[in-house]
Amino acid sequence: MTAPLKDITPAERARSTSFYEASARTRLELLLDAGSFVEFIGPEQREVSPHLKIFDLPEQFDDGIVVGHGRLDGAQVFVAAQEGRFMGGAFGEVHGAKLTGLLRAARQIGSIPVLILFDTGGVRLQEANAGELAIAEIMRAVMEARSSGVKVIGLIGGRSGCYGGGGLIAGCCSALAVSEPGRIAVSGPEVIETNRGVEEFDSRDRALVWRTMGGKHRRLLGAADVFAADNVQDFREAALELLGLVGPLGLERLKAEQERLADRLRRYGACEDAVDIWTAEGIVHAETVPELPADQFIALADRIGRTSRDAR
């Protein structure tokens, strides 16, 4: 017998729900304090993409992103969650503008943080120019919000990962939490293979994809500061942890980031594979990192992994 659903606490439900498998709406419902989420321009407003009909493609009422506000441990937060199953979570005109508007409000207020639940392949091809520009506007809006003291936290663990311009927006955030399936990159595996050949990157080699772009590598490199197990409760706790750590953006941080990235190139610029980088970081039996369970990996990363704290 399984217990009736109503007897399960929200935290237990969040703990037993895979972030990777959940929809954008379920992620938000379980990430935030129970019942606190309120959506801006919800699906009933039917603000669909004006461009998909040109290609005779189906629309989604929220254009693949859910934005609104809610509470996290009682404190107000703005949230945006991409739906990675609708057109790969890609940025189109309406989709992007919803996030831009949210960030602009956060900038004006100055004290309410923004959580972005990335799940995206990048620019939506059918509205490529509008999507690319939306990403540029979001990057600018993230920087302006951070400069006004807003904490912008990215959570990455969805099926579409965080690719293309999504990876650049993630790079603009104050801090990131990532799970193992939460890949972060600019060019996707198929894009590299198509342009440079299978010798450069074999997109069907899933182990190669995970260790080059996956959450464990990003955490060890210091691209993400917190590693979350693949459940919504872990991401909730990661978001709370990061909100407590992040400081204001200023010139010193950008100089520190320049040094952090230069140091990375000096140390690992000649490495051929992620395993070489992990070995150079001092991990014994680095080849076993992909198999480590989340708790053991977190212990390892906390001991050896780098951090981007105060340097992004």
């Binding site: 993630a170 972060i184 980031e257 990235l261």
Partner: peptide, 19 residues
Amino acid sequence: MSKRDELLGLNEFLAHLAK
């Protein structure tokens, strides 16, 4: 578009330049 650039975190380098 290369394995090396993505391995080293190209998204951070491009974002850093924009920032």
